[in-house]
Amino acid sequence: MVYIIFLVAAIVVVGAAIKLNEFGDVISRKSALSGAAVGTFLIAGATSLPELTTSLTAVYIDNPDIAVGNMIGSNVFNLLILAIVDIIYRRRRLFQRVGYQEHKPAAIMGLVFMIIIIGALALPQSIEWFGVGIEMFVLALLYIIMIKFFSNKGEEETTDEDLPVKNYKLKTAVTGFIVMALVVFGAGSALSISGDQLAQVSGLDSSFVGSFLIAASTSLPELVTVLAAFKVANYGMAIGSILGSNIFNMQLLVLTDILYRDQAILSAAGNSHIFIGLLGVFMTLVTIYLLWRPAISNQWRYIAPSMIVSLVYVVFSYIIF
């Protein structure tokens, strides 16, 4: 029965994520918001709902390793999605079609967030304030600063195509976006819970389950969103949704720590998450490089960094397993 629930939930999440991206594309083209802003905040928040459900469930069953591993692992898997899509659609030159300056804040902030998490995990004793790790207050403050930064910028991403927008009014698109976000939340919850049950049956370590198995399943909306954004040639939203999800996931970790009342959640989690975090730092640095580097005509030289990222992820997963 659990297999059927997992499959049905996955199908619903895929369908809802496609519509979510469609409405998000309309919002980005018919409002003052750029594709990067829509991807970084609106779509990123909606597609991160399954991660929220999973981590809250982990807190309820007192399994901090799954809660922490799910968030860090999802960030790593999200970056893997960008790398794989970049390889498959190498002729489109994904990272050469968007502006570095527009995505730089989200990319660098994601890197800073991951480094802060690694530092907190490495400390023998977390500094707590009201039972919450001090690093969580830092993450929340930096996120607020970033939102303020984005609200003051109005740059548009660079694309070579100007495809027609779906025939939706802006109000209809906003309403549809909210409805699809709720569907993703519901189906994503079923996906996460059933995925957790499947993991328990396998008898694998909680850190591995949270960082790879559940993280991969809860990142399904992000995968569909990126592919759908490619379909409408909204490359800024494709990259923005991934970078934004990674930032938003760290804010969900803040919420998780607040609800986990035993102690600071990073103190309760295992040190093995440090290695997953280091993998995330490496992949984020490569992503920043891909956004920054000048145009390259040779397609094999172009996709070399993405191929390295994918290979490192596979090898690392095998070693951890």
Rank of each mutant, 00 (worst) to 15 (best):
61 I>K: 14
49 L>V: 08
24 G>R: 07
25 D>L: 06
21 N>T: 15
51 E>G: 11
23 F>G: 04
25 D>Q: 07
17 A>H: 00
64 P>G: 00
55 S>M: 15
46 A>G: 13
26 V>G: 05
49 L>C: 01
56 L>F: 14
68 V>H: 11
64 P>K: 00
66 I>K: 06
41 F>T: 13
27 I>M: 07
56 L>N: 11
32 A>Q: 11
57 T>G: 04
64 P>M: 00
31 S>C: 12
31 S>M: 12
65 D>W: 05
23 F>E: 08
44 A>G: 15
39 G>C: 12
33 L>S: 03
58 A>Q: 10
17 A>G: 08
66 I>Y: 04
61 I>R: 12
54 T>D: 03
44 A>W: 11
56 L>S: 08
57 T>N: 08
65 D>V: 07
29 R>V: 01
17 A>E: 03
59 V>L: 13
32 A>M: 06
30 K>D: 00
41 F>E: 06
60 Y>A: 14
18 I>K: 12
61 I>N: 04
43 I>W: 01
37 A>R: 05
41 F>P: 03
32 A>C: 03
43 I>G: 15
27 I>G: 03
35 G>I: 10
65 D>N: 15
19 K>D: 03
42 L>W: 05
43 I>K: 05
31 S>D: 08
48 S>I: 04
25 D>N: 12
43 I>E: 13
56 L>R: 07
60 Y>I: 14
